[in-house]
Amino acid sequence: MIDRAAAFHALHRPGQPLLLPNAWDHASAAALAAQGYPAIGTTSLGVAAAAGKPDGTGATRAENLDLARRLRDLPVLLTVDVEGGFSDDPAAVADYVTELAGLGVVGVNLEDGRPDGTLAPPELVVAKIAAVRDAVPGLFVNARTDAWWLGLPEPLAEALFRARAYREAGADGLFVPGAPDDTVALLAAEAGRPLNVLHRPGGPGLAELGRLGVARVSTGSLLFRAALGAALEVADTVRAGAAGADRAGAGPDLPSYGWVQELTGRFGNGRSG
């Protein structure tokens, strides 16, 4: 695992950001692997929604483990979004991440946002980070702060304070979803660790984010939501009988039945437990 973890660390180069697409099941992860992405993450919304559960409520502990088992043979480096670690006991969080590492996972996102819309006390998050670092040396701990997403009065000051605390606890990266574009360069300079931001349609592209010092750009739930949107668009076009409905879902970029079957045969392992 150490060599794979080291390879994942090496992909984080400030100024040359890693594009980390986020998958939610075996098919989406295998397709991204076939497309040549060296590393993928999971999307907590996609994993939760696919299981019929709400996101951000600590309800997908088992689903994340099961997905990691399904993806363990893919030729990619996998990092898993574990929300807040599914426990407020740092030792339990470390035990859970150790299970994931045993399945070949090389990184985790560990966030400070809580289901009630507040931020976890920084000392609790620090304890979780330190416990994971001690239990699984080498694993990439991406510490996420939801200072902007939760609408704090002074999100920049809170994010910078937490960035320092999380770094000192042993975090390998800082993730600040929702940070305004005009704060990214400052965050990258002050974080002291590779900065991860969320891709925003219509926002800065990879090259511009690289110039701002970003080391990693995640797609988050975007791919999952785009897939749902495309499915609804095709279904609605067929139902409406609109012009071109006979060609709905038959574009040149649409994966064929045979391609999906071949993909599953190439990367599938049939293991779920």
Score class of each variant (00 low, 15 high):
105 V>Q: 01
61 R>A: 13
34 A>P: 05
194 P>A: 10
25 D>N: 13
27 A>D: 09
160 L>G: 10
237 T>C: 08
119 L>N: 02
62 A>Y: 03
69 R>I: 14
42 T>E: 02
260 V>Q: 04
80 V>L: 01
65 L>Q: 08
262 E>P: 00
73 D>C: 11
152 L>M: 14
21 P>W: 03
253 D>H: 11
229 G>Y: 05
197 V>N: 05
64 N>H: 08
124 L>A: 05
184 V>W: 00
81 D>M: 08
117 G>E: 08
126 V>M: 01
173 G>L: 04
60 T>C: 10
4 R>Q: 15
273 G>V: 10
239 R>W: 01
150 L>M: 13
182 D>W: 15
138 G>A: 13
194 P>I: 07
120 A>N: 01
155 P>G: 14
261 Q>E: 12
156 L>K: 13
111 E>F: 01
85 G>Q: 01
87 S>T: 02
13 R>Y: 06
65 L>A: 09
72 R>C: 10
213 G>P: 13
57 T>N: 00
14 P>Y: 13
184 V>P: 05
221 S>A: 15
234 V>C: 00
121 P>R: 01
153 P>E: 15
104 G>E: 08
174 L>G: 07
131 A>H: 11
179 A>Y: 03
170 G>C: 07
223 L>S: 06
66 D>W: 07
89 D>H: 06
204 P>L: 15
120 A>F: 02
187 L>H: 10
123 E>R: 00
111 E>D: 02
199 H>G: 13
212 L>T: 12
